[in-house]
Simulated scan of single mutants.
Amino acid sequence: MGGRLSSLDRVSKSPQSSRVLTFSTAAEWKTHFDSNKESDQLMVIDFFATWCGPCNYMLPIFNDFAERYKDVQFIRIDVDLFKEVAQEYQVEAMPTFVLIKKGKPIDRLVGARKDQLQKLIEKHKPRS
């Protein structure tokens, strides 16, 4: 049935975790972000680089968190492919994790600090 794909149909999932979103273009990211601006759902963005050792260390941890916290969106953005997005969020070191609710950054963590990231997720995730 020759229907058009929505922008979310083109969003790819990280091969390591089916719950981690990645994007092919900045336009796809913007469409996803704009469609979630009013949501109370916590969005955790991992700004990373493929050549970054600490980023690679955090990847399986980030994927584990994505599987554990089903009520939170987990997104990875490659700073080398999405320079404008990284600049918009003032990313100067990797990894940088930006936590967003209702379209606004509410917290951030710089560095490969698993326990601190988990504390921030716990602090800001929706209460059951």
Rank of each mutant, 00 (worst) to 15 (best):
A93N: 15
E88R: 05
R4L: 03
C55S: 13
D71G: 04
D78W: 02
F23I: 11
I106H: 11
E84R: 12
E92I: 10
K123C: 02
L21H: 03
H124L: 01
T25R: 13
F33R: 11
H32K: 04
G2A: 09
S35C: 05
R4K: 08
F97G: 06
K13A: 12
N63P: 13
K83G: 00
K104Q: 14
D71S: 11
F65P: 04
S35N: 07
R113S: 04
M58E: 12
D64S: 15
N63E: 15
F82I: 00
D64T: 04
F82D: 11
R10Y: 06
D78A: 06
K30S: 09
F82W: 07
I106M: 14
Q16E: 10
I106S: 12
F47G: 00
L59R: 14
W29F: 10
D64Q: 13
Y89W: 05
R76Y: 02
D64L: 01
F65G: 02
K101G: 03
F97L: 05
P105N: 02
L21G: 00
S12W: 09
R19T: 02
L42W: 11
E122Y: 00
A26T: 10
N36P: 03
A93Q: 04
K123H: 13
S128I: 11
S17D: 14
N56S: 14
I121L: 08
V98Y: 06
R108K: 12
L21D: 03
D64G: 04
Q116G: 06
R4P: 02
S17H: 03
L109I: 11
Q16G: 15
K70F: 06
F97P: 08
K119C: 02
Y69K: 14
R76A: 07
Y69A: 05
M94G: 07
V11N: 04
M43Y: 02
G3K: 03
N56C: 12
G2Y: 08
W51H: 08
L109K: 08
P54W: 07
E28S: 05
W29Y: 08
A49M: 15
M58T: 14
D115K: 14
G103M: 05
S14L: 14
A86G: 04
F23D: 09
W51N: 10
S12M: 06
S39F: 03
E92T: 12
